[in-house]
Write a protein that binds this DNA or RNA. Structure first.
Lengths: 346, 346
DNA sequence: CAGGTGAGTCGAAACGATTCGACTCACCCC
DNA sequence: GGGGTGAGTCGAATCGTTTCGACTCACCTG
């Protein structure tokens, strides 16, 4: 930049002002500096120099809760990320993908070494979250989605429990008495299997636990709890077979995600069970699943774009030095054709 | 860091050496510096300072070819990104997501202002690619996937044409004479519709064009070309209806992606056509689509993880100052149950 | 005409590290 | 004992900006 300034016949500071504009500059000077930059093939202020001086790198870290492929197999997360990226982009901030730090505590990860102005953590586990520790050590503002936010950080949640209670009451009002549930994983690396009710209390992931808590709040005991290994159709199929084959003979299955519910429906079809005549199934998220036709899930609709926008707003607030905030987004019950009256007892 | 050095009773440069280790340091000194850092709550060298001095920011930009949600609706891309992130993470490099720069030329985007050491561009358009221009202006190494690489940059491709020729020959050997094709978009913002053969020559996206070129190379004239708006099941359904309803009465449909093929199969089912008895359908990518059961696509398998690893290797080479390289990854023909003998003429 | 005003410009001081040549010694070898 | 060696440490320069107080002047006001 010094070269550009010299070539334009102005001082270094004037060149900086002309290019980045922090104070008034005469139009003539500005033009001279810009054409000098063009002639010299100067590509604009170096981000590194700017970052050092101004303390802002223009990067927001996004900590994924597991491998990317799994995180974003769920289209809802994609929409969240999409609008987050869009909004942050308008603020001149980019999104840096950071794998969940699972390595030994001593190791340096990207969280410690990459330039960042703030961190967004998705789907935080309850106890001992290394990602948050690392961010706080560096003094970075933290925004947590779907998890408990530590002191000083912002958070974005939805009312998982209340939403699930609505689903439970819906199927109960249709006459169902044997209600099963298929849950999201309790922690990374979980396999798909039937779990005991008491195991569920060890759930580290907030949405899983809250959606499970709904049964207690609704005063219903699930006849069987199947924990899925991930929010995928494949895991849903597997879980569906476990639930549908269970001795308690569930007539309704509350699934903690639409992808799981879709898998359960495929499992039901494979067993020649009609949905909803033989078994009612509910989802969670409100995804658009055209290939599931003719079925349309009865589910809870979440607005992914709104979540992304809200996250961006929370990030901006912290970046601007404002106080942390805790936002809860509304969700809506969506009636589909996968729930119906309980079958008459045999 | 100066404080830490003072507290440990060593010079600033020694402290730097002890923490970042560029030259031998006695174990005792190192220990002293580290404990001083711990006592003072020093979180390690500032990334911005380090980036300025060393010229490396630890960030690799990834330019998406459209909104994220569309880019990654395709699970293949997810797997690519996953292994790319993993490998680059091992090199201490993070991945920064950069929306495709569509804005007016004058505007500054993240590509111009974010710290980066290299840029990976997915699915490049042929002429006038602003992303690449911007990267080169900044003097950043560029790796291009699925596109033509400009002078000085590396590229990763697959042999789209040859792979598609295999599919065409496969269905031809089954006796099919009326072969339709459903293509990927020609450019962003394209809508789903039937196109004339001559329109196809304007295709800006390399994979679309190369897979289409296969017909010429195989000496086959497609009886109808349907261009899809995106690589999604929904677009595939729409395109499928257009192709299946076409007067030329295709008995085989070559689809440029598995998601499109899946959509076409759903369209066929909706029209009470059996696959492959009434119509044969092929895909491209080799995705795992459990919900398509009992159908398994006849398709071309691509190894997403291998692509990601290869990209990372190309990035590393350029980062190390080695010469650019052009890599073409192998693909494999996968026989499924969606292709069969052509129906006897009525 | 003196004094105030404010737009425009300049100098110089950070920002926080890395890096490299030079320096200090303790040690070894002949 | 002198000279060579090399591990360990130090100083100082440097990376490329932004920012802020100070300075210049032309212009306006009373």
């Amino acid at each position: 930049m010094a070269d550009v300034a010299a070539h334009a016949g102005v001082s270094l500071s004037t060149a900086s002002l002309a290019l980045s504009g922090g104070r008034p500059i005469s139009a003539r000077t500005k033009e001279r500096v810009e054409s000098a930059a063009r002639e010299l093939g100067y590509a604009g202020p170096s981000p590194q120099g700017r970052a050092l001086r101004s303390g802002r790198s223009g990067v927001v870290g996004l900590v994924l809760h597991q491998e990317l492929a799994r995180s974003f197999r769920d289209p809802l997360n994609l929409r969240v990320l999409d609008s987050l990226i869009e909004d942050l982009g308008k603020l001149g901030q980019g999104v840096l993908l950071i794998p969940h730090p699972t390595r030994a505590a001593g190791e340096q990860t990207l969280l410690d070494t990459a330039p960042m102005d703030a961190v967004v953590v998705l789907r935080v586990q309850d106890q001992h979250e290394p990602a948050i520790d690392a961010a706080r050590r560096r003094g970075l503002p933290v925004v947590v989605m779907e998890g408990t936010a530590p002191e000083g950080s912002s958070s974005l949640t939805i009312d998982d429990t209340e939403a699930t209670v609505q689903l439970i009451n819906h199927v109960r009002s249709l006459g169902h008495a044997s209600i099963a549930t298929v849950t999201l994983p309790f922690r990374p690396e979980d396999e798909t299997r039937i779990v005991e009710a008491r195991e569920a209390t060890t759930t580290a992931w907030v949405p899983t636990r809250h959606r499970l808590d709904a049964f207690a709040r609704a005063g219903v005991e699930p006849c069987v709890i199947v924990r899925a290994s991930a929010s995928t159709v494949e895991a849903g199929v597997e879980a569906g077979h476990l639930a549908l084959g269970h001795e308690s003979g569930p007539t309704a299955i509350i699934c903690q995600s639409d992808l799981l519910a879709a898998g359960v429906i495929l499992a039901a079809r494979a067993r020649a069970l009609s949905v909803p005549q033989d078994v009612s199934i509910t989802g969670f998220d409100g995804l658009d699943l055209p290939w599931l036709a003719p079925h349309r899930l009865t589910t809870i609709g979440q607005d992914g774009a709104a979540k992304g926008h809200a996250l961006a707003r929370l990030v901006k607030r912290l970046l601007d030095g404002e106080a942390p905030e805790h936002v809860s987004l509304p969700v809506v019950f969506q009636q589909g054709n996968t729930t119906g009256a309980a079958p008459a007892s045999p």
